[in-house]
C-alpha cells in the first residue's frame, strides 16, 4: 500500500472515531428530548435531526459549506476562535457527524422508549435526584442502545462521501478519506487494483465494527437482564 492509501485509511478511522465520540452526548440529549420531553418545536427538532438521512448528501455538504465555510456565518465567527472546518480534517468530522446523527439518535431513542418510567420513578422515591436517576438507572439500561447507535454512526462516518467531498473537497493527506480515495483511484486509468485493496479494508473495518457491537451489546444485555 502506498503512504497515500495508508493516510486515507488512518484519516477515515480518525474522522469516524472523533465524529462518533463528539456527537454521542448530543445524540443522547436529542434522544432524551424526542423520547421524553414535551415542548413546542419538538416536531421541528425531530425533522432537523432526520433531515440528513433524507436530503441528498451533496445538499447537506453544500449547506455545511454555506454555514461553516470560510465565508459562512458560523464559520467566520468560529475562525476567530481558532476553529477552522473548511478544507480541514475537522470539517470531515463535522460532515460525518451530521450525516451519522440520525442513526445515532434513532438507536438511543428506541432504547430509551423501552425503559420503564416506573423504574425511574422508583429511584426518585429512594432519594435520587433526576440527574442521579439518569446516571444510575436510565443510562445503564440504555447502554446497549447507545453502543448499537455508536457503532452504526461509526460505520456511517467511515463511509460518508457525498457531504464530505462537497464540504471539504478531496485533498490527499488532509481531507481525503477512504471513500474519497477509492473515488479518486477509480478516476485514473489502472487504479482499479489499488482501489480494490481499499475496498477490502473498508469491508474488513465495517465487519469488525458490527461484530464488536454485537458482542458488546450481548455482554451488556446479559449484565442488565440475566
Amino acid at each position: 500500500m502506498t503512504p497515500e492509501e495508508w493516510q486515507a485509511v488512518l484519516l477515515s478511522l480518525r474522522v469516524a472515531l472523533v465524529a462518533t465520540l463528539v456527537s454521542l452526548p448530543f445524540g443522547i440529549l436529542a434522544a432524551m428530548a424526542l423520547a421524553r420531553w414535551r415542548f413546542p418545536g419538538r416536531q421541528i427538532l425531530n425533522g432537523l435531526v432526520h433531515l440528513p438521512l433524507i436530503l441528498p448528501p451533496v445538499v447537506t455538504g453544500y449547506l455545511l459549506l454555506l454555514t461553516f465555510g470560510r465565508r459562512g456565518t458560523v464559520g467566520q465567527w468560529l475562525a476567530e476562535t481558532g476553529i477552522v472546518f473548511a478544507f480541514n480534517w475537522t470539517g470531515a468530522v463535522l460532515a460525518a457527524a451530521v450525516m451519522a446523527f440520525p442513526l445515532l439518535v434513532r438507536a438511543i431513542r428506541l432504547s430509551l422508549e423501552a425503559v420503564d418510567p416506573g423504574l425511574e420513578a422508583a429511584a426518585g422515591t429512594l432519594g435520587a435526584s433526576p440527574l442521579w436517576v439518569f446516571a444510575t438507572v436510565t443510562l445503564p439500561m440504555i447502554l446497549p442502545g447507545i453502543i448499537a447507535g455508536a457503532v452504526l454512526a461509526f460505520a456511517k462516518a467511515m463511509g460518508e462521501f457525498g457531504a464530505t467531498i462537497t464540504f471539504v473537497a478531496n485533498i490527499p493527506g488532509h481531507t481525503q478519506t477512504l471513500p474519497s480515495a477509492i473515488y479518486a483511484l477509480l478516476q485514473v486509468p489502472g487504479g482499479e487494483e489499488r482501489a480494490m485493496r481499499l475496498v477490502a479494508i473498508a469491508i474488513a473495518v465495517a465487519m469488525s465494527a458490527l461484530l464488536l457491537s454485537e458482542w458488546l451489546s450481548r455482554a451488556i444485555a446479559r449484565r442488565v437482564a440475566s
Partner: peptide
C-alpha cells in the same frame, strides 16, 4: 420526601 414506596410490581433495578 423520604417516603418509602413499595410498588405492586416491585420495580427492582434489573441491572
Amino acid at each position: 420526601r423520604r417516603i418509602g414506596y413499595v410498588f405492586q410490581d416491585g420495580r427492582l433495578f434489573p441491572h
